[in-house]
């Protein structure tokens, strides 16, 4: 793997930044060069949020992603805004419980997963983000599911240890989901 640029976008409150942090920490534990850049300011409060994560074997140049290798879209406005920026041959992960649209591009690989519905069903409504992350790690050619548990443990504060298991469950759900 040389460099993977991942753009995660959705509503504020969907755990967009957390999902990005998860990928960045995972990269850190794997001794990769990583950068994580959030959108910030008032639009974060209930508006659109996005987050740029770069995982690389060489030092990261600009942390700003203009042409993502991977787009994770957790709502329709985000998909519409960024779908055309994905590099040819790139991947698009979308939450199909919130996005009901056909993607016209044929040069990208699309993974639809009803993450929000799956999460609600299991009473873990706030973890749709991690279901998609599980699916992403399972299906991306350069990323692996390995080291996930360690990453989650590092990311969840000790006080909220119960969340480790919940996050792992969500990641496993995404991993095992078949297209």
């Amino acid at each position: 793997m040389k460099t993977t640029q991942i753009l995660i976008a959705g509503f504020g409150g969907q755990g967009i930044l957390f999902a990005g942090k998860f990928l960045a920490y995972k990269g850190l534990l794997e001794d990769k060069q990583v950068s994580w850049l959030p959108s910030y300011g008032p639009e974060m409060r209930g508006g659109t949020a996005n987050c740029n994560v770069i995982l690389s074997e060489t030092p990261v140049g600009s942390p700003i992603i203009t042409d993502p290798d991977v787009l994770v879209a957790m709502n329709l406005p985000s998909l519409e805004k960024y779908i055309d920026t994905v590099v040819p041959g790139g991947q698009v992960y979308l939450d199909s419980s919130l996005i009901n649209t056909q993607i016209k591009r044929t040069d990208v690989q699309v993974f639809s997963i009803p993450a929000t519905a799956m999460a609600k069903e299991r009473d873990m409504a706030s973890l749709a983000n991690m279901i998609i992350m599980g699916h992403l790690l399972q299906n991306h050619p350069e990323l692996t599911f390995e080291g996930t548990a360690e990453t989650v443990q590092k990311l969840v504060p000790a006080k909220k240890a119960a969340l480790v298991e919940l996050n792992m469950n969500a990641l496993m759900l995404g991993k095992e989901y078949k297209q």
Binding site: V34, S35, W36, L37, P38
Partner: peptide, 10 residues
Amino acid sequence: DGTIGQMMEP
């Protein structure tokens, strides 16, 4: 600047 301030890196 805002970018370097807001971004995370190792």
